[in-house]
Amino acid sequence: MHISEGILSGAVLASGAALAVVGTGIGLKRLDADRIARSGILSACFFVASLIHVPIGPSSVHLIFNGVLGLLLGWAAFPAILVALILQAVFFQFGGITTLGVNTVVMALPAVICYFLFKNFMDKSPAWALPAAFAVGALSVLLSGIIVGLALMMTEEKFFEVTALVIGAHIPVMIIEGIVTCFLVAFLKKVQPDMLPGRRKTSG
């Protein structure tokens, strides 16, 4: 989900850029040199995974996985997502320079929020961890939709119907993202639990 170039007002674009700079700054500060390779490769993973389309009825939606990236990287999700968006702009022209800030906030802020809300549930028993994982997936998409909505509404009140449509379109994605995140975390818990926050000493 990207806001295209040329739609938002200057003020909204500037606030998005400012927030993205702050988030990326914090993320980079916490990213020591020996975790750059890890963040870069996980960011590549996020890029590839977000191209996957899963069927829903006659149509299909693409998964986002920003919540998962948040769980795996903490604050470093900000620069990782910024970098993935730069590459998407260069490859596909989804988003561009002026919307880079807003789009980074749209994806990364929910990732970081979900990280802090749910990181302590991840090493609990599945009865706690799996509902939390569902919440990570669903909430990250919902929050992204809400930020998109806010950006549109703050640009132009006439965008109300568009905003409603955008958020409405996110509801099925939320549910599917929640389900997929739930399975994904269950798998990670069995196979590689130290990737999830809680067990390792996190620097998020």
């Binding site: 490769i41 993973c45 998964l63 994904l184 798998f187 990737m195």
Partner: peptide
């Protein structure tokens, strides 16, 4: 289907982390 994709992406992340090391 959703479980298959989830496991697929999970293994992608796990291998990516191992590769990163």
């Amino acid at each position: 289907t959703y479980r298959t994709y989830a496991f697929l992406v999970a293994i992608l992340f796990i291998r990516a982390a191992a590769r990163a090391n």
